[in-house]
């Protein structure tokens, strides 16, 4: 199970926050295929948000093929977003760690690195994270 953290001041729509948090959990392997998502009642009992928002988020995840609703049973994870290419010890991760080391040697501080990464990320992938752009990308 996952627990959602809703930030009402973030400016990001509440249902989108749930979608993003489920995806993050799928990427990190916290949720695996077959796992059950909390029911709308359980989510709203913990977060005090509108149940329709939770159901809308689950519908969105269902539409993207990440989860499926089994009537009378609940909502279950269908597939994972965890990728071996991004796992600890993978060559891509090692390269990035190496690059980070060099950036630090070059005198960049934390904020500089973050800004640089964000800018390169923007060039490499269209659109800000969490929008339907990436959703469509992941769904295909």
């Amino acid at each position: 199970m996952v627990e959602f953290r809703i930030d009402r001041r973030s400016g990001v729509a509440t249902y989108l926050q749930i979608v993003q948090q489920v995806k993050q959990a799928l990427r990190l392997g916290l949720l695996a295929p077959g796992d059950k998502l909390p029911t709308a009642k359980e989510v709203v009992a913990a977060t005090a948000i509108n149940p329709n928002t939770v159901l809308k988020a689950y519908r969105e995840l269902d539409r993207e093929g990440l989860v499926e609703a089994r009537p009378g049973l609940g909502t279950f994870v269908r597939r994972s977003l965890a990728r071996p290419q991004a796992a600890a010890g993978s060559p891509l991760r090692a390269e990035l760690a190496d690059w980070m080391h060099r950036a630090r040697e070059a005198g960049l501080d934390r904020e500089d690195v973050a800004a640089l990464l964000a800018s390169v990320l923007e060039e490499g992938f269209d659109g800000p994270p969490g929008t339907t752009g990436t959703a469509a990308h992941e769904a295909t």
């Binding site: 709308a40 009642k41 709203v44 913990a46 977060t47 005090a48 149940p51």
Partner: peptide, 13 residues
């Protein structure tokens, strides 16, 4: 927060 959560759970159920 607690009461809103209870209310929403009621609405959801």
């Amino acid at each position: 927060h607690e009461m809103t959560a209870a209310l929403m759970a009621q609405a959801a159920e």
